[in-house]
Each structure stands twice: as structure tokens, then as C-alpha cells.
Design a protein around this nucleic acid. Structure first.
Lengths: 154, 154
DNA sequence: CAATATGGTTGCTTAAAGAAACCAGATTAG
DNA sequence: CTAATCTGGTTTCTTTAAGCAACCATATTG
């Protein structure tokens, strides 16, 4: 496959995709959001090949999205938990879910109904907002040119 | 590689990832957000292999994320534009960008400064919110069980 | 008419995904 | 104490997709 890497890209979207931009990584993160997961949990819930799961888990741990925690009780057990960096993916996962529900609804299943634990009311549709909380579309936004940090004499 | 498909998954995140969950598709969409793009534009801006670009473009068109528009002027030209479905990926792209900027900042480049065209002020950090616009973390949310649609007698 | 631009397609090579078997350390059952 | 089992992997092999470069067909420009 010779996948291209984007570690060094100056585009933060590309760099983000480099860490969680493949099919499995985000699904692993998604499942970890329901609580700590062990190796077999991921395997059974996702139906992922074991070697690929290994690879993804170790990469996510390397990238500090997950942390591996030894759980002492009976035997060699460890669970994987989200770090703060991992938890910070929550809006992305939710936005993907909402997009999928809107544009590719499952014919046989109602969309997952996420609710505010406090009020019991449904959560809001995720949107790009200005500083006052007003929604912004692609058209409403522009890229402000920044002064380059320190320009090395070339 | 034998990629697993998630078309039939009952998880809307998996279904969403099926359409835009690979490295290139989202980057193609991202670049299309700056305005209509032609074949060579994507190729040069992204450095993607031509056959892969072909494949991704046609899949995105099939999935109605992009539409292909013939542009009459001099020669066989066509551009790719976002559909509404494609534009709806805006929050996801922005959220990814913010996550990348926060957790993997580029050492040599300031993060892209997206601003409200109206006010000139920076946009807000994307977050999951309750109905009143208050931010919600993973912990603040629960999944409300829904009544199944119509249960076929088994 | 030749050169060039555009939007692809075709082959080839390499690397990653998937499946299944194997494995090592710790635990429990007998 | 020994055998079976659980857990979290690793190894091997096959299939498939990504990347590269060459080729191609149409249309335009010089």
C-alpha cells in the first residue's frame, strides 16, 4: 500500500488524520468512550483482526490518545483508557455520527439518541460557531493570514 | 489489504467513516472547501497519485459528497464542487483541525487562523453542547434507549 | 500541423489489511 | 501438582489497495 505519512505536513488536518484518520483508529477511540476496554472487548465489539488491533492500540498509545493500564485482578489483564487528548476527540466522533445519521440513515435502526445526563434532553447538532455561538457555514469563514513565526535567513 | 466495509454497519460512525474515513477523502473534501477544484488542483495541492485521486473523486461523487461540473471554457474541463452533504462535513474538518492544532502543533508554523467573515473575530472551539449551548463532555452524555422501529417476528 | 493541457486509465511494485495458527505467562479446575 | 483456560499478544500467509510512472484520447493553442 505504501501509505503516505503526514507527520510532517504543515496542515493540521493532515496531521490529525495521521493519528486517527484510518478506519479502525477512530472506531477504537469511539468504543473506548463508552468506558475502559480490554483487548478482547475491542476485538469482539469491532470484529477487527488481532494483529491490526495490536498495531492500532500501540499506535494510539504511542500517540497518547489511549493509555494502557495494568489491572491487577486475576491474571495478566490490562485495559485501555482514553487520555485527555483522546477524550478531546469526542466532538469529532459525535459530529461524524450526526453526519452519518443525517445523510446515511440506517433503514432499520433509529439513530443513537445521545442526551444530556443533566437535563435528559437531546444534544445539539454540532456546528462551527462564531465567538457568540452563532452558526457559521463554510462561506462565513475566512483564513486570516498570520505573520510567520521566525523566518530563518535562507 | 482487503479493507473491511462498513456500509451495512448499524453504527452511523462506521458508515460515515466508510465514505470519508480514509486519509485522502477528507483531505479532498477539505481542499474543495476552499472553492471548486479541478483534477490537477487536487493532484498538485495534495500530492496524491492520479489513480487514487480518480478513485476517490468518483467515490465521493457516487456518495454525493462532491458533484462533477463540466466547465465549458477552453477544452475538456470539469470541476468538482461540494454538495450540501459535502458542505455538512465542515464542522468535522474544523474539529479535526482544532484537535490537530491543540495536540500536535506544528513547530514551525502558526495554526491556521479561521475567522468569522462578519466580525473578523476567531471562531469558537468546536464542542458538544446541550440544547442550551452549554458544553458537554463524554461523561455528561448518555445513550437513551430507543424503542425499536418495527420488529419483524423472528 | 505540432505542441500542450486536461482528465483519465493501465500496468507494475510495494506495503498494509485480514484470517488463522501459534505462543507465553498467569489462573483456575481437578 | 498437572492440565485446561484466559489473556494479550506475535507470526505466517494471502489478498488487496496505495503509489509510481507510463500511456492515451480529446480539445485547444500557437
Amino acid at each position: 500500500m505504501a501509505r503516505k505519512r503526514f507527520d510532517d505536513s504543515n496542515c493540521s488536518v493532515a496531521r490529525a488524520l495521521n493519528e486517527v484518520g484510518d478506519w479502525w483508529s477512530l472506531l477504537v477511540v469511539l468504543h473506548a468512550m463508552y468506558g475502559p476496554r480490554r483487548f478482547v472487548d475491542f476485538q469482539q465489539e469491532l470484529g477487527i483482526a488481532r494483529n491490526i488491533l495490536c498495531d492500532r492500540l500501540s499506535r494510539l498509545v504511542d500517540n497518547q490518545v489511549l493509555k494502557k493500564v495494568e489491572v491487577g485482578e486475576h491474571g495478566s489483564r490490562c485495559e485501555y483508557r482514553l487520555t485527555e487528548k483522546g477524550r478531546d476527540l469526542f466532538p469529532i466522533v459525535v459530529a461524524l455520527r450526526q453526519w452519518g445519521d443525517k445523510w446515511n440513515p440506517s433503514p432499520e435502526q433509529a439513530p443513537l439518541d445521545l442526551r444530556d445526563r443533566e437535563t435528559g434532553k437531546p444534544i445539539r447538532q454540532i456546528e462551527v460557531q462564531n465567538i457568540d455561538g452563532q452558526p457559521l457555514s463554510v462561506r462565513d469563514v475566512f483564513v486570516k493570514e498570520s505573520v510567520p513565526k521566525t523566518k530563518k535567513a535562507v
